[in-house]
Design a protein around this nucleic acid. Sequence first.
DNA 1: GTCAGTGCAAAGCTTTTGCAGCGCG
DNA 2: CGCGCTGCAAAAGCTTTGCACTGAC
Lengths: 153, 153
Amino acid sequence: MRPAIILPVTSWAERTSRSLREHGYRTGGAREAVIELLGTEHCCSTAQELHDRLRQRGRRVGLASVYRALELLTELGLAKRIDVGEGTARYEAAHLEEHHHHVVCDDCGRIESFEDAPLERAIAAIEQRLGYAIAMHEVVLRGACDDCRGATA
Amino acid sequence: MRPAIILPVTSWAERTSRSLREHGYRTGGAREAVIELLGTEHCCSTAQELHDRLRQRGRRVGLASVYRALELLTELGLAKRIDVGEGTARYEAAHLEEHHHHVVCDDCGRIESFEDAPLERAIAAIEQRLGYAIAMHEVVLRGACDDCRGATA
DNA sequence: GTCAGTGCAAAGCTTTTGCAGCGCG
DNA sequence: CGCGCTGCAAAAGCTTTGCACTGAC
């Protein structure tokens, strides 16, 4: 029998929670609930969406606490703040294994993610060239998705 | 010897103004003042900044009119709305001859622009690949600029 | 003369801040 | 058993909307 492939045992939520504990932050409250939820999300969400989803699950959390948790996670690099041009910030877990960007449909507002190695290489080269110590980058494409392209006149 | 490059005789402001007239919009009011100012700006500005600059020049314009002008120009593709993650939208003229992106310093907030052909090629390739009719794209790099990198601990 | 365009004020959003109480460590 | 974290409410931005009036066509 073959030995099992060793997958990362810890999820993003577990790692994040542990990281906070190690930084001296307390656990057990609203922040933990936000982390747990964020770890299960498939795409970037707004603070309001996260708040609503937590309430639906019966977890009574203040919207301000959601914002405070997201601010902290973003500061520590554990989550990413994304701005796709709606005038509302979106947030998602900063997974170690994965790095992606977003496409937004201007008609229906749908947001999808994509990965692209050549794009990352081009950005890495720019970072070399500019006199900046680049900490992060964000690419947003906007247009009409397949569905809307067919449907629209 | 290379033939001289033919430069556009008309400025962005002139072209934009004419384009609006051709679309049946009236001229002469606050919108014209916004267009004229936007045509002279070197980097993307917020609605508030444009409003302040107009007032400084003695042009009494309502902030709402600045927003309305920017909304219209953006809709018609004559200006671009840019979101560098400050929570405030920025706008700039959509020049025909030039296409650039932005680097933001997280420390001092300075915003600079850069052009990069390989980056554009990578994005063009992605557009082919995804099932989207991409109308526009935006790249924002964030980090510490030369000055702040030296100054910060 | 009409009615698009405008300035002002008020409303609508998202996000931040103040504060008293609760509960983790 | 202190003080970090929380929920609520209020405040602080940015942006949009309502409305009466002005001026371009």
